[in-house]
Amino acid sequence: MTDTANITRRVVLGAGLAVAATAGFGGFARAADSVKLGVCIPAATHGFTGGIVWWANEAKKELEKAHPNLKITIKTASGAPEQANQLQDLVTVTKIDSLVIFPFESAALTQPVAQAKKKGVYVTVVDRGLTDTSAQDAYIAGDNTAFGRIPAEYIAKKYNGKANIVALRGIPTTIDNERWDAFTAVTKQHPGIKILDAKYANWNRDDAFKVTQDYLTRFKDIDVIWAADDDMAFGVLKAIEQAKRTDIKEVFGGAGSKSMVKTILDNSNPLIQADVSYSPKFIYDAIKMTAEARLKGGTLPATHILPSALITRDNAKEYYFPDSPY
C-alpha cells in the first residue's frame, strides 16, 4: 500500500524543498521577522533515523503552513564530514539564521557548529551533545537514564524484586553505557534480581536473534529478557518462539516503535506488556520549539530533557503514530 504513497510523498517533499530553497533566495529582502531555519539530521539508515527524517519533515509541513514567514530547510547526511559540509552550505548559501542539528558525532561537529554560531546563527543541538557546550544556545535530548531506569524499576516491581534477567546491549557507545548503568543501578538494589549475562547485539534484529538463541541454550531458567530496543526485541521473540520456551515471562524492548506499541495496544503477544518511550519525535519537538521561540524573538532554556515514559496498555494510545515509519 505504501509504495505509491511513499513516492508521492517524496515527490511532494522534494518539490517542497525546491520551493523552500527558491523562496529562501527570493525572500532575502523581506522583513526581519522572517525566520530561516536549517535542520541537519542523519540520513535514514535504520528504523530510528528513518523516524527522525519522517518527524523532521512532519514538523516542516506543519510549521510552514502555520507560519508563512518561516522557511525550513532539511539536510540529511550519512557521515560527520558530509554533515559539516551541509552546515557550511546552509550558513553561506541558504543564509539560515537558526539551526537545529542532530550531530553525527559530538567531537567532529563541535567546530563547524561553533563557526555557524559565530556568524550569528541561533543553535539548538539535539540528542548528542557537543564537546564544547558554548557552541550551542540550547540542548534538547531524550532521557537515556530513564530509558534504562524505567524498565529496571518496572521489572523489580512486577516480579517483587526477584527475577532472572538476561540483557542485550546495543553498540558500544556512551548512550548505551548510560542506559546500562541506569539499569544496573536499580537492579543492584534488589538482591533477588540476577543479571545472568549481557551481550552486544548491535541494535539489530539478526544479532539479537543469534545472541538470544545462545542465551536460551545456556540458561535454563530465565524470567525476563531486557532487549533494550524494539528492533532487538523482535529478534528475541523469534528466537523464543523457535526454542518453544515457556519459562520466559516477559520481553522488554525500548524506544516505543510503532509495531511494539501496537502489540501492547492489542495485547497480541503475552510476552510484550510494556515499553519505554524514546521517540524520534524529539526532533519534531526541537524544530517546533526552536522555530516558535525564534519567531517571537525569544530563546530556549539551555537544556531541555524530553522525558521517557513507561508505555503500558493504559497509555499506549498516546504513543501510537500509525503513519510514522518507526
Binding site: N6, A44, T45, G47, G50, V53, W54, D231, P325, Y326
Partner: peptide, 11 residues
C-alpha cells in the same frame, strides 16, 4: 533497500 523501506523495515 533503505529507500524502499523508508528507513524502517519491510515486513
Amino acid at each position: 533497500l533503505t529507500w524502499l523501506a523508508d528507513g524502517g523495515a519491510i515486513t
